[in-house]
Design a binder for these strands. Structure first.
Lengths: 172, 172
DNA sequence: GTGCTATCTTGTCAACGTCAAGATCGACGT
DNA sequence: ACGTCGATCTTGACGTTGACAAGATAGCAC
């Protein structure tokens, strides 16, 4: 192992996302991440400033991944909803941090840019603001409830499909 | 000030909910709560066991408050949705903790009981499971997004009304 | 009054986040 | 080739935290 890690920043973001996914943001320890990466306890601070900086990087990556996922729907609202839920289920560590103020530096430039890109992908799916908010709420709500364990089922997207379909059609 | 506080448990739950609402669960400190209540740093542990125990009590109270709020809708789905969002906006500290595993003792008897009561109030609103999940998702998603600051507006329930109405009617 | 139990205090410990100061490495100009 | 310089990482330290163990206090039953 050389004095320099090579790509510590990348390693830390990955490890942080995994740790958050497994044990939640509260249990995240910078010193533990440093140990996993084989560096000293103060190395993370150089790249991220503080603990919130690490989670900010995770959140920014999450919004980028989400925007990419939404792009695969090619404008289809139901497909986008399933992509939203699928993203949350595939990257629970990212999702857990993305919408939590007080855990991240909300005005970080990279985070703001990634968030706006994802937001643009969302609003492009519907014709009016009310529908946009409703669709976002359903997808986000299902994803949140799924990750919290409030909903049962084997596969997130599979369980979400009838629910999102019903919401689009209406008649609740 | 006597040796005994009087109702330390109640004071701690209130202070914890307020602190979580203002600065998030991550910034909560048992020692700070103890200082606010004018007791020693180890007093909270006697009543709640550990930090998660305090948040568990907050979450249980939250589910009780939510069930009460849902009961005021008298079976009307839209009214229940507005009550759900209204509860989250009125008690953000409780809401932030209620659906976060790893922050609470998920199998605590009091928490389980309160959660099941709220769950019963929810499922009683719709005729089938798919509609129940869809309605819950919209309300929960809107509430979560609202508290995260992703949605703009002056009043939560006021902003939620057209969105929930559209979701019930369909046509996204 | 005398024990009993719940409540709260005191003292302690390892772990944590953060900061300051120093060591090491690689790249670049000359 | 060589020295300089910035980026990267280490070392050491400080105050705070959650948790635990052991002791003090108060109210209550009898």
């Amino acid at each position: 192992m050389s004095y320099h890690h090579g790509d510590l920043r990348r390693a830390m973001v990955d490890a942080a996302a995994t740790a958050v996914a497994e044990r939640g943001p509260a249990a995240l320890s910078l010193r533990e991440l440093a140990r996993l990466a084989g560096v000293s306890h103060a190395a993370p601070a150089h790249h991220f400033g503080d603990k919130a900086g690490v989670l900010t990087a995770v959140a920014a990556e999450g919004f980028t991944l989400l925007a990419d996922a939404l792009a695969t729907a090619h404008g289809d609202l139901l497909a986008a909803g399933l992509a939203y839920v699928g993203f949350a289920a595939a990257h629970p560590g990212h999702f857990a941090v993305m919408f939590d103020r007080g855990l991240v530096h909300t005005d970080d430039p990279a985070l703001v840019a990634a968030r706006e890109r994802a937001g643009g992908a969302l609003t492009a799916l519907t014709s009016d603001a009310v529908s946009a908010r409703a669709a976002w709420s359903v997808a986000h709500g299902f994803a949140s409830l799924w990750l919290s364990g409030a909903l049962t089922g084997a596969d997130a997207a599979e369980a979400a499909e009838p629910v999102l379909r019903r919401a689009v059609a209406g008649g609740l």
